[in-house]
């Protein structure tokens, strides 16, 4: 069953461009330009794209913050802007660069206030909060005003705040932006746990592709407001011909070896393979002075960078 359905979703903004000292010209910018998207219940969807591609704008239209300029969108059966307050009970939202917590109040007070705002039964609230406290190690800073929390602590608080009312869909707009490695790991582990339970649909925008690799099976790439890829990460690799690489370091240089690329004055051989590397490794037995073998998985960042570049070149 679909929880998110978008058909021809568009958002246009009018910007004024300075032409001379007195003259300003109106220009219409299409931030989102006909996005079609269907997300099923329990899916974990990565929604990526370069800066200004329209990711955050799409999310804001899906959550009822922004009014679409055209097209249709339904989330949990609701039309987001006209039915925003009803939809708000069914979704959770984390904006990495904004806070939904009360700046002056301790984290615990924010959570308690959200219980009343979302009218969550006390038992449900307590059990969800208990779970988040345990998974996100909240106890050490629950009594500290939000303004005094570190970014990592605040983000853990934001995730909890977004989940306390038991949302069906969790929208995450760059939730790991600015976080250190440890905090990123904590956020990813928590989201993995949320996703694996299967009852929460997760839509994640990020620039950190490790988030996507770790969390999302499905990847939607948007550029210039249009979807340029919708499928699995493997499908993305297949589409852009990214292959595994077997890197062989040698003590003695060789001039050539089968279809390998020779590097480092003949002391390094690089093979590109589809699927298993066993056949290549088996052929290496006869090589003199074999020092090391490394198998490198295709780098998603390279693939996505190529995809962005291709999409930009193809853009109207």
């Amino acid at each position: 069953m679909s929880v998110i359905e978008a058909r021809g979703l568009r958002k246009e903004f009018t910007v004024r461009v300075k032409r001379s000292r007195l003259r300003r010209e109106k220009r219409v910018v299409r931030a989102v330009d006909g996005v079609d998207l269907t997300v099923e219940r329990g899916e974990m969807l990565g929604y990526i794209g370069p800066n200004g591609a329209g990711k955050s704008t799409t999310l804001k239209m899906m959550t009822g913050v922004l009014m679409p300029s055209g097209g249709e969108v339904r989330v949990c059966g609701y039309t987001p802007v006209p039915q925003r307050t009803k939809l708000a009970r069914r979704i959770g939202v984390v904006f990495g660069q904004r806070s939904q917590l009360w700046w002056d109040l301790p984290l615990r007070d924010s959570f308690d206030l959200l219980r009343h705002i979302f009218r969550v039964p006390a038992d449900d609230h307590a059990s969800r909060l208990r779970r988040c406290r345990s998974l996100l190690d909240l106890d050490e800073f629950l009594e500290i005003p939000v303004r005094q929390l570190s970014l990592g602590q605040r983000m853990r608080g934001e995730l909890t705040a977004a989940l306390l009312h038991g949302p069906e869909v969790l929208f995450l707009d760059e939730p790991t932006i600015g976080l250190d490695v440890v905090s990123k790991q904590a956020v990813r582990s928590f989201l993995t746990e949320v996703g694996e339970r299967g009852d929460t649909t997760l839509v994640l925008t990020t620039h950190d592709l490790a988030d996507i690799e770790r969390l999302c099976k499905r990847l939607v790439v948007i550029d210039h407001g249009r979807v340029v890829h919708d499928g699995t990460i493997d499908a993305l690799h297949a589409r852009y011909g990214s292959r595994r690489r077997v890197v062989v370091d040698l003590d003695e240089p060789v001039a050539s070896f089968g279809d390998a690329t020779v590097e480092a004055d003949g002391r390094r051989l690089v093979f590109e393979v589809d699927g298993s590397a066993a056949a290549v490794v088996a052929r290496l037995g006869g090589l003199p002075g074999l020092r090391d073998i490394a198998i490198l998985e295709p780098d998603i960042e390279d693939v996505v960078a190529r995809l962005y570049k291709t999409a930009t070149e193809d853009a109207p």
């Binding site: 069914r90 009343h116 979302f118 449900d124 779970r131 038991g166 949302p167 009852d199």
Partner: peptide, 26 residues
Amino acid sequence: MGSVNATTPPSAHRNIVPAFRTFAAI
């Protein structure tokens, strides 16, 4: 988390007391 169903709003005629509680909490 914990529950598939989100917290659903109560019907309009039962809404006054919870609405008052929400207002009072804020």
